[in-house]
Design a protein around this nucleic acid. Structure first.
Lengths: 211, 211, 211, 211
DNA sequence: TATGAATGAGGATTCATTCAT
DNA sequence: CATGAATGAATCCTCATTCAT
C-alpha cells in the first residue's frame, strides 16, 4: 500500500478515534512511523489530507445514494438506510466536526453544499416515488421539510451521540440508533401496503442497535 | 455592573459572534478594557467562564420549559416554541460547539445531561397532555422518539445553519426557520381541533423567518 | 529599561552582527533570557520588530538630514557626512539586507520610499545652495544624478564592504572609507573658496578610516 | 542539450525571476520535469549550481572586460558600457543577492574577489589610457576612487532598482538607466575631443532607457 | 480588585539533502 | 542517468495561565 494511501487511512482512523481537532500532523506521522517531512511530501498540509478524505466521502455519497437498478420500494429504502448507517460510521469524524471543518475551508464547504444538494434531490425524488407507489402518505407541502429533517438527523446524529454519552466512544450500536430515529420519523407516513416491509427494517436495525 | 458579570456578558457576545474556539481569554479582557490578570482573578480559567454561561443556560431552560400557569394547549405550545427560538439565539455559541465544549469538561457534561433530561421529561409530559386533550394524534410507542427528534433539531439547528451558509453569520431569521422545521415535524400529528391554532403559529414564524 | 526597548536594542545588535536573516525570534529571546512567548507579547511578529527599528531609522534620517540652524556651507556638509557615517554604522543590518527586507514588507517599502524621497529632496536643495554660494561648480543638468549617485554609495556601501572582505566584520573604519568615497565623488565639483574646508573634511575621515 | 546544462540554464532563469533565495532545488527540478534526485546526481548541492553559474559569470567578465583588438577610445568605452548592461541583465540574480551568496560560500567569495580585482585593474588601465589620449581630464589621485565608484554602481544597480520600485520586476529599461547613471558620473571628466562621441553614447542609452 | 509582563509547551510547515531501486 | 520517497532539524507563532506588584 502506498504511503499516500496509508496516510489517508491512518488519518481517518485517528480522526474517528480522537477527533480531527486533536490529531496533529505529527501524530499521524508518528503513528505511521514516518517523518513529518515525509507526510508533507505527500500532502501540502493538513487541509489537503482532509480534502482527500472528503473526496472519499463524496464518492461514497454517489455510490450509496446515486441511481441504482434495484427498483422495489423496499430495496430503495433499505439501500438508503444502510447507506446512512455506513456513511455515519465510516466518516464519523467528519460529522463530529462538520461546522468547524467547513468554516476553515471554503472550497470544501462549496463541495459539501454541492454534494448534499445532489443527495437531497435524489432522496426527495425517491420519496415522491414511494408516495406515487402508494407506500407513503405525506402532504406534498411538507415533503421537502420531511427530507430536510431526515438529513439533519443523519448529519448530526454523531454529534448527538457525543452529547448524550459521557466520554463513551461512538459504537456501531449507537449509530444504528440513529437509523432507528429516522425510521421513527417515517413511521407516521408509511402506508398500509408498506407496513410489513417497514416493520422488518425496524426489526433489523433494532437488532443491530441492541446487539 | 460587576466586573464578573461584565466578563460573562462579553464572553457570551464574543462567543456568539466568533465562536467559543476563536475567542481567547485575552480577547475577552481586551474587549472589556481589563487586564488578563483581572479576568483570571474573577475566573480560575476559561472553563469557569463557560460554566457560568452554562448556568445561565440552565436557568433559562428552567424558566422556558418548566411548569407554568398558562394551561391552554396553545399557550403551552407557543411558550415552548418561543423558548426554543430565544434559547437557540441567546446561546447559539453553545449549540454551535456543543460536542467540543462537553467533551472538554465532564462536569459540565453531567450538568448538561441532567438539564436536558429534565426538559425532555416535561416536554414529553406536555405532549402526552396535548394528546389527552385531543390536540395531537400520535402512537404512544413513537412519542418518545418524536420528542427526541424535536430535541435534535433544536440542539443542532445552529450547527445546521453554519453548514448551509458559506460564511454568512447566523441571523434571527435563520433561527426562526428552525422553529418552522419543528412545526413541520408536528404537522402530521396535529388533530383537527388544534389545526387553526397550529396554522397561526406557523404563520407567525413564517413572518419572522422571511421578514 | 523596558523589555520592549530591550528587544528592539538586542535585535539591532544581533541583526548588525549576524544579519537580519540569520537571527530568529528565538535567538533574540534567548539572548535576552526571556521566553519566546514574552517576545511575542511585545511584538506580534518579527516584522513588527523590524518596523520598530525602521521607525528609529526614520527618526534618525529626520534628525540627521532635516533642516538645521547651522548655515555655513561647511557646517551643512560636515553634518551630512557625519550623518551618513553614523546612519550607515547604526543601521548597517538594514543596509546589508535592504532589498530582502523591503521585498518582504510592502508597507515598509512605502515608508522607505517616502523617507528617502524627502532626504533626497533636502539634499539636492543643499547642493543647489552650495552652488549658489559658489562653493560647488556643477552643471545643473547633472545635479540630480550626482545626488542620486551619492545616495547609492551611502545605501550600498555596507553591502559593498561585505563583498570586499572575506568574512571580516564591518568596522567603523570600513564605514569611514565609504565617506571618503563620497568625498572623492565631490572632489571634481568643489570650487576654490571651499577647497580648504573640503580638504579638512577629507583629512578628518582619512584619520578615522586609517586609525 | 545535456541535463547538467539544462539545470544551469533553468536555475539562472528561475533565480533571475524569483531571486536565488526563493528558488528551491525542488523548484528547479520540477521546472525541468526531472526528479530532485537526478538534480543531485549532477550537482552535489545547490552551492555547486551557483558556482557553475558563477563560472559563466567569470567567463563573461573575461570576455566583456578583457583585452581586445578594438583600440579606439570610443570603441573601448562602448564595449565596457555594453558589457556592463549585458552582465547586469544576464546575472541580475547574482547582483541582487551578492552579499548573501558570497557570505555563504567563502570559496566563491575568493573567486569573486579575484575576478573583480582583475576587472578593476584593466578598467583602471583603460581609464589611464583615455586620459593619456586626452579624452579624459581627471586627477590621478582620484582615478582609483572614480573607478571604484563606477564599480559600485554596476554592482548594486540591480539592488537599487529593487529598492526603488514597489514590487515591479526588473526590466532592461531599468538596467539601461544604470548605464546612464554611470555616464553621468563620467560627464565631468570627459575632455573636449571626446565630447561628441560621449554624447552619442548617452543618446544611445537614453533611447534604450526610455523605449 | 486590578495590572500586565512573562511563561512554555505545542503545532503547522519548509527544504536541502540522501538513498534504495 | 534517473526516480521519488524519505529525512529531520529548524522556524514562526499561539494561548491558556501565572505571578509579582
Amino acid at each position: 500500500m502506498k504511503t499516500k494511501d496509508r496516510i489517508i487511512e491512518a488519518s481517518c482512523e485517528l480522526f474517528n478515534e480522537h477527533g480531527e481537532r486533536a490529531v496533529t500532523t505529527n501524530h499521524i506521522a508518528a503513528h505511521l512511523g514516518i517523518s513529518p517531512g515525509n507526510l508533507y511530501y505527500h500532502f501540502r498540509n493538513k487541509e489537503q489530507i482532509i480534502r482527500a478524505l472528503f473526496a472519499q466521502y463524496e464518492a461514497y455519497l454517489e455510490e450509496a445514494y446515486g441511481p441504482s437498478d434495484d427498483e422495489t420500494a423496499f430495496g430503495v429504502m433499505k439501500r438508503y438506510l444502510d447507506g446512512m448507517f455506513e456513511g455515519m460510521w465510516r466518516f464519523r469524524f467528519l460529522y463530529a466536526s462538520l461546522p468547524e471543518i467547513l468554516a476553515r475551508d471554503p472550497e470544501l464547504h462549496k463541495r459539501y453544499l454541492q454534494a448534499h444538494h445532489r443527495v437531497l434531490e435524489t432522496a426527495t425524488n425517491n420519496l415522491r416515488m414511494l408516495k406515487a407507489q402508494g407506500m407513503m402518505v405525506i402532504d406534498d407541502a411538507y415533503l421537502d421539510e420531511f427530507a430536510e429533517g431526515i438529513k439533519m438527523v443523519v448529519t448530526f446524529w454523531i454529534s448527538h451521540l457525543y452529547t448524550q454519552a459521557l466520554d463513551k466512544p461512538i459504537t456501531e450500536q449507537g449509530v444504528s440508533q440513529g437509523v432507528l430515529q429516522i425510521l421513527a420519523m417515517f413511521h407516521g407516513y408509511i402506508a398500509e401496503p408498506a407496513r410489513a416491509d417497514f416493520e422488518r427494517l425496524v426489526a433489523h436495525y433494532r437488532a443491530l442497535a441492541h446487539g
